[in-house]
Amino acid sequence: MSEAAATIPDTPLFDRAGSIRGYRINKMAMALGQPANRAAFKADEEAYLDSFGLSAHEKSAVMARDWHEMVRLGGNLFFILKISAVDPTPITRIGAAQASMEHEDFLHLRLGKKRNG
């Protein structure tokens, strides 16, 4: 399945490899479902990330809010959305970042929304 599905362009599936690769980053993000962890994340983001054993590369992707890179590192959107909830960052901005498009262009060209103004 995962090999066949890999043939759909620009569509990563969260399979065995992704699940293993992204385990730490997703575990860190999952924990943001708890208010105490959200407070810790806000108070000292790097210390919070360290407490989940993230690599330097993973940490910089999270701290830069590089959504594309977080996904490449195995982050699954459903978990890392909890980072966006803390910020908060709209999901359409995360979509636009992954599509490498300006937000307005993304809304119009991908989602079919009318352009503002």
């Binding site: 759909i8 569509t11 996904v71 359409t92 995360i94 979509g95 636009a96 599509a99």
Partner: peptide
């Protein structure tokens, strides 16, 4: 809908 990857935002009405 598609939330992940460069095809994010894919909708097929």
């Amino acid at each position: 809908h598609q939330l992940q990857g460069a095809r994010a935002g894919f909708i097929n009405q």
